[in-house]
Simulated assay, not measured.
Amino acid sequence: MSYSTEARGSQNSLERRIFFKNGKGLYISPFHDIPLYADEAKNVLYMVVEVPRWTNAKMEIATKDSLNPIKQDVKKGKLRYVANVFPHKGYIWNYGALPQTWENPKHIDENTGFGGDNDPIDVCDIGSKVCEQGEVIKVKVLGTLALIDEGETDWKIIAINVEDPEADHYNDIEDVRRLKPHFLESTVDWFQKYKVPDGKPENKFAFNGEFKAKDFAIEVIKSTHQQWKDLVNKKTDGGEINCTNTTLKDSEFLCTQEAAKAFVEKVPTCGQVNEIPSEVDKWYYYQKN
């Protein structure tokens, strides 16, 4: 199954949107129309890459917009970039989301004691390839970390691109610990500190920041997949979440290609590329007092 993207709006602007198409060139929602499983029997999943490794722009699936394009997060009217907290540079993995998953804010997770963060579940691809924004890749699950972000459960799935040359060597979280020494510790460090330059406290974790293994992670994913099913089937109230889709035939949110095209064409075409602010390259040195 292949996918492509259509960029609208000038790069590095508030208008920038990345829309998705399937192999037939038809518009789809990356949130609702791309399946979760590429091979359910082998626990191989599709991942939508929102942020390529080493970049800083906080790009995400726009859950409240029609067709859920990728757009850059905005804070106080300005585009949001994550800080470089020494020794890290931007995101240290290809970062993205699992389609057809949703962390329901009203669902109190039995493991963490907190509701979900109202987004698709997040994925960190540890493979060697730097992916492209909007790329859809197949990954296998290795484990998970439970971030508690401002009182919300925010699971981080650790996975590897199945096409990575070393993918066969990685089958569980302990393989990451063995083959990539200090990588898991660096991942905890990144999530713990990345908001500190914005004046926020360090993030906290469930399980004292310990990673849970593959089987645990798979159960978390299954739970968020069911929460997504309840969302699109109107068994739960998603609030402002936009469930417009073009392939879910029994969905009340199904729209035509004509309507989908109209959503896309509301966004201006690509124009001149805007420069990224110079302060994005600043390095922050942080030590807890």
Score class of each variant (00 low, 15 high):
N233D: 14
G96M: 08
S66P: 12
D65M: 12
G113Q: 08
E279F: 15
E110L: 12
Y37D: 08
G239I: 14
F205C: 09
A83G: 07
F216P: 08
K138S: 11
K138P: 11
E219Y: 10
E15R: 03
F263K: 02
G134M: 07
D119L: 04
Q133I: 10
F191E: 06
T5A: 09
A206F: 11
H169V: 12
Q100F: 07
E185A: 10
N56S: 08
F216W: 15
P165S: 09
Y170C: 01
E135W: 06
E103L: 00
G90E: 07
V130W: 04
Q287G: 12
P268Q: 05
K235P: 01
I121A: 00
I121N: 03
D189Y: 09
N245P: 14
L14E: 09
F216M: 12
V85G: 02
S186F: 06
I221N: 01
T247E: 13
P52N: 01
N68V: 08
I34H: 05
E50I: 00
K204A: 15
F191L: 07
L142A: 06
L231I: 12
D175M: 06
N208L: 13
L145A: 02
T187V: 13
V139N: 01
V176I: 14
D168T: 13
V82A: 02
E132G: 10
D164Y: 03
K89D: 08
W102G: 01
T153Q: 07
I18E: 13
L45T: 01
G115M: 06
G96R: 06
K212L: 15
D172S: 12
R17H: 10
K78I: 06
T101R: 03
E240K: 14
P105I: 12
I160G: 01
N203D: 07
P99D: 11
V141N: 00
E132R: 12
K261Q: 15
D117R: 02
F31V: 05
K24C: 07
M1G: 13
F20R: 03
G90N: 03
D164H: 02
E219P: 07
M59F: 09
Y3K: 08
D164S: 04
A97H: 07
F31K: 11
I137N: 01
D122W: 05
V49D: 01
N203I: 09
E174F: 14
I158Q: 04
Y194P: 05
I173P: 10
W228R: 04
E252A: 15
D109E: 12
D122Q: 00
D172R: 09
K282A: 13
E152S: 11
Y284L: 06
Y285H: 15
Y95C: 11
L36C: 00
Q227F: 11
P69G: 06
T101E: 05
I92C: 05
A41C: 00
F211C: 07
R8C: 05
D168K: 15
K235A: 08
A83F: 08
A167Q: 11
Y170P: 09
K78Y: 13
Q227P: 06
